[in-house]
Amino acid sequence: MTIPKDAITVVLAEDQGILRSSLAVMLGIEPDIRVLAAVSNGHEALRAVGQERPNVLVTDIEMPQLTGLDLAVRVKELYPATRVLILTTFARPGYLRRALDAGAVGYLLKDCPSTEMADAIRRVARGVRVVDPGLAADSWSADAGPLTEREREVLRRAGEGESTAELARTLRLAEGTIRNYLSEAISKLGAHNRTEAARLARAKGWL
């Protein structure tokens, strides 16, 4: 594929196949945007960014292996020339605040018009911050939440069904340490168990 010298290059990360294909087709229509890769999980996205070095990574928040927020942090550390645009269904100030703190330059909702998305990619590629206007005013007053980063990670994975033993293996921690993190998170959220704690934290945009 021949890429015009002034084209904006993009990697897409979206775990829903139909939406991923639709986004790739929609953006491919734009004369100045080229989609270099469209992938279905966080690890594939990070690998594609490393290989393609796009101007912009467009990523969902909730994806297998690495979330969009995890990706924003890793991309900022490893490939700072690539700007991150979060495209999500979550209209929650808590998520927006965490995304910006993680290094994302843009945050849009999936129901935005295609012309708005393409324009956002152009602006993000220039380093301009782009935030859904309905969320921008609320983001800075949003509660960042009581959880530490490690408690958030453990609770998120537990909420997705990983057992204590699996978490211990994945994170290379003792099972007792995992239980302590979960206990702290459950206590801070006033929940009865890890499932309820994960649901409450997710509703607030803290996971």
Rank of each mutant, 00 (worst) to 15 (best):
T115G: 11
R83Y: 05
R156T: 00
L27P: 00
A144L: 14
Y79D: 04
G205Q: 06
A201Y: 02
S114H: 14
A45L: 09
P54T: 00
A38V: 08
G161P: 06
E116K: 13
L71M: 06
A158L: 02
P146M: 13
K188S: 02
S187W: 02
L200R: 15
D132Q: 15
N180W: 05
A104N: 11
T82A: 05
Q51V: 15
P4E: 13
P80H: 14
W206R: 01
V11Q: 01
L96G: 01
I8C: 09
L85R: 04
Y95S: 05
L85M: 09
E196P: 04
M26G: 01
V154Y: 06
V84S: 10
T170W: 10
R74V: 08
R53W: 05
Y79T: 11
S163A: 11
L23Q: 03
W206A: 03
E14L: 11
L108M: 15
T67W: 09
P93I: 11
Y79P: 06
V131A: 13
Y107C: 09
A45D: 04
I178T: 00
V124S: 05
S183R: 14
R129C: 12
E175M: 14
L85E: 01
D60Q: 05
I18G: 06
V105K: 07
V75R: 00
D119K: 11
R123I: 04
T115R: 14
L108V: 14
L27D: 04
R172K: 14
D70M: 13
E149T: 11
